[in-house]
Nucleic acid binder design. Structure first.
Length: 477
DNA sequence: CAGCAGGGGGCGC
DNA sequence: CGCCCCCTGCTGC
């Protein structure tokens, strides 16, 4: 350390940090991922999930969208809630009878400290750590997570916490002392109880019921890597539903097989260059989609927006959800309008265009911009040659066959206004409109009423004038 | 009155 | 096919 440097230490940093994290989750603030589970929906943070689970981390790595929706199929809500509490607060209370289920769910989701040995903080850089963690997940042959866990259970009843980077005990106590009430279970007695129960259960497991066997099918194929739960990741920008039946790593293969595609991931950008500079305007709308809809009676859970519910209803629901964009070619035609690089750049919101909740849903759920008919399918064969290209805005119901109109229309969503007035700060997205605007400054009124001295800058205004003053329907007559 | 946005024709590559 | 330009209608102030 350089001379004269002081080391400032925030004594309560970890407790405060965890508390704030938990509070943020409670308030659903800054949440950037929705975990759907058995009809309930949890607004959480990628950061926390990926920190606590390489499984989630991998999902997010492969899902470069702003607010994915992860649908857990093999996890129940109470398990998920417990695991979320565990991830956010480092501790959770659980009934003894439910412990096995919870552990199983943790295995499935590879929750560090519960199912997967968590890594002590490394001195290396973060990037290196990511690499390491990735390697760890790729090469799960050693050390065996469960075996490690058993070792932990033999040595420490709090292995789940003691091996994590922050010391665990102050965190737990701090939460208890602050008496948070947002969980239905009583946390005051819970944490130590949970840990004790868990550890004792683990000892039982390690001796009597090897967890691998208890997991059944989940570990049948690879004992060192619990099969992830069936997860559907719904990518906001692209409307793509990804089925993760096997491994996350294989997700893209699954997508290809199912005829789905990542429009935003640029794996197949067939709409080349049509607005490469136009980024996903839905990004800025994303927060709207998941605006906190706090329902105290639901605790942490909340009902998903209707559109999402529809989507979750299955393929038919998805189609209904996509109806605004749905084209005869189906999912294969879905593509990212902005070149599909998956970039998450955020535009300033369109000026003067407040986005309603429902509209925000549409903006998000209907994804980026364009789909076409008459497009080649996955096999490369062209479909519907006779059908003119239909460009449909996925953020509104606008449809056109004119690409220029389509791009121009997209300005509306991006807020792009390339034409600026040299006299004032006015700018617009159509040159014609700028020309009309400039008439304000020049005083030009090219549209004259043939019956009176009235002159107008807009032809439509003259028309209105003609109708109002002269009962003429057409100013040209 | 003025801004906004969609439609369409014409033209060049 | 994409771009330029013009036309047109709607809407808010």
């Amino acid at each position: 350390m350089a001379e004269g440097m002081l080391s400032l230490s925030w004594n309560n940093h970890r407790a405060t940090f965890c508390h704030i994290l938990s509070t943020l989750r409670e308030k659903e603030r800054y949440t950037d991922v929705t975990v759907a589970c058995d009809g309930k929906f949890y607004q959480v943070h990628k950061l926390v999930l990926s920190t606590c689970s390489e499984y989630f981390e991998k999902i997010f790595e492969n899902t470069p969208c702003k607010h994915p929706v992860i649908v857990l199929k093999d996890v129940q809500t109470d398990e998920l809630e417990a695991l979320l509490s565990y991830m956010y607060e480092g501790a959770v209370s659980v009934a003894q009878n439910d412990l096995a289920r919870l552990i199983k769910a943790a295995e499935v989701l590879r929750i560090k400290g519960l199912a997967v040995p968590d890594e002590p903080p490394l001195s290396e850089s973060c990037s290196k750590r990511v690499t390491q963690s990735r390697n760890a997940s790729d090469d799960r042959s050693s050390p065996h997570p469960k075996r490690r866990r058993r070792e932990e259970s033999n040595t420490s009843l709090q292995g789940a916490q003691t091996s994590t980077s922050p010391p665990a005990s102050p965190r737990v106590s701090s939460f208890e002392s602050e008496g948070e009430t947002h969980h239905s279970t009583s946390r005051t007695q819970s944490d130590s109880r949970w840990m004790d129960q868990r550890s004792s259960e683990r000892e039982d497991q390690s001796t009597d019921h090897p967890l691998d066997d208890r997991l059944g099918d989940h570990t049948a194929t690879s004992r060192s890597s619990p099969t992830p739960p069936q997860v559907e990741v719904m990518v906001d920008e692209t409307l793509v539903k990804e089925e993760m039946v096997d491994h996350v790593d294989n997700s893209q293969d699954d997508i290809v097989d199912s005829g789905m595609d990542y429009g935003s991931m640029g794996s197949d950008s067939r709409l080349d260059g049509s607005g490469g500079g136009e980024e996903d305007p839905s990004s800025q709308m994303l927060p709207n989609k998941f605006e906190p809809k706090i329902n105290p009676s639901q605790g942490q859970a909340q009902q998903l927006p209707d559109a999402v519910v529809e989507a979750l209803a299955g393929p038919s629901g998805m189609q209904g959800w996509l109806s605004g964009c749905e084209m005869p070619t189906g999912f294969s035609g879905l593509e990212g309008y902005s070149g599909g690089d998956g970039s998450q750049d955020v535009h300033p919101p369109p000026q003067g265009q407040p986005v309603s909740q429902s509209q925000a849903h549409q903006l998000v759920l209907l994804g980026r911009i364009a789909r076409r008919t008459g497009e080649t399918d996955a096999s490369g064969t062209s479909q519907q040659h006779a059908v003119p290209k239909i460009l449909q805005c996925c953020q509104c119901s606008y449809t056109t066959t004119n690409t220029r109109h389509f791009k121009r229309h997209n300005f509306r969503h991006t807020g792009e206004k390339p034409f600026s007035c040299s006299y004032c700060s006015y700018s617009c997205n159509q040159k014609t409109n700028l020309s009309v605007h400039i008439r304000r400054h020049t005083g030009e009124k090219p549209y004259a009423c043939p019956y009176c001295p009235f002159r107008a800058t807009h032809k439509s205004n003259l028309k209105t004038h003609m109708f109002k003053m002269h009962r003429m329907y057409d100013c040209t007559k």
